[in-house]
Design a protein around this nucleic acid. Structure first.
Lengths: 157, 157
DNA sequence: GCTCGACTTCAAGCGTCCTTGAAGTAGCAG
DNA sequence: CTGCTACTTCAAGGACGCTTGAAGTCGAGC
């Protein structure tokens, strides 16, 4: 064991979190994590930072920016695990985001499925190019796949 | 109608694709789309570029970089819609990526579900912090949620 | 043939998320 | 106490995906 106390050096935190030390310093600068300093000025991290980092990583996967993660983190306890009351709204919000992402991906997947056998990406024949469900999903106006476009005037492909 | 021929100006292509003209020039620079030029040097796009752009947007949503999209695009016909033989492997590869993403999100979702009621993010008690399925999903070594970490030595949280 | 908006190029800038490098210090093993 | 690695700060750089601005040209309508 490299050192005595129950505080983690930046290298240890890096090893345990899977993040680079440079990333950890950056996160600290952003206020995502905090540290104490030794007499000599080196960082020492409380182990609760592991939780915060796990949270940040999860937040990123849910599609949040580091700034957004910071805001959410600010409403959770610093050194303690959040209790159910604190955690529930966060978890619910995230689940909603996740559900939306899954729904989007499944829509795209279905469209691709339809295309595997159809010599696809041929305008007017393919679900990838025709609104229907996409239109419903993405608001008003003709939309296909991932962008807007009129359903192609006359002309061929 | 702004002009005669069946070629699209960059403004028209932008309008129809939902992308900014600056993005279109950038894409052209990257080799994602091509254009012809008028005598005066202005770009004119074949309508098949709409398909390529739809493809690129879809690729982005599947998580590909523009570079990766370019590679894939290079194996599909330039001005024609791909046939089933050309398209099938691409669609299958994308579906696989989509499936992986969905699986990841569902895993995260399940973990969050378990946590809503548990005062979560408390080390050792919570699925978010304990390997199990995540370990299987992300290769060797102990991993929780989105990073590596040993399952916490002695001490408390 | 003029006008005016849409186009052109080129260079620089931007937001996000970090990494890299230089120059120097801390802290633990022996 | 030496020595070596891990640490420190600060500034710059870098990848990705574009956007913005300046300065100038094209081209369709009147």
């Amino acid at each position: 064991m490299p050192h005595a106390a129950d505080r983690l050096t930046i290298g240890e935190l890096a090893g345990r979190s899977g993040l680079a030390t440079s990333a950890l310093r950056y996160y600290e600068e952003l206020g995502l994590i905090t540290s104490e300093r030794t007499a000599g000025g080196q960082r020492r991290y409380h182990r609760s930072m592991l939780r915060r980092l796990a949270f940040v990583r999860a937040a990123q996967r849910v599609g949040l920016s580091l700034e957004e993660a910071r805001h959410t983190l600010a409403r959770l306890p610093t050194e303690r695990a959040p209790n159910a009351t604190q955690w529930a709204p966060v978890a619910r919000a995230w689940q909603q985001r996740i559900d939306e992402q899954i729904a989007e991906l499944e829509l795209l997947r279905r469209k691709l499925s339809g295309c595997v056998g159809c010599g696809c990406l041929s305008l007017k024949k393919c679900a990838l190019y025709n609104p229907d469900d996409t239109a419903a999903t993405h608001g008003p106006g003709a939309r296909w796949l991932l962008g807007d476009t009129p359903p192609e005037p006359p002309g061929r492909d």
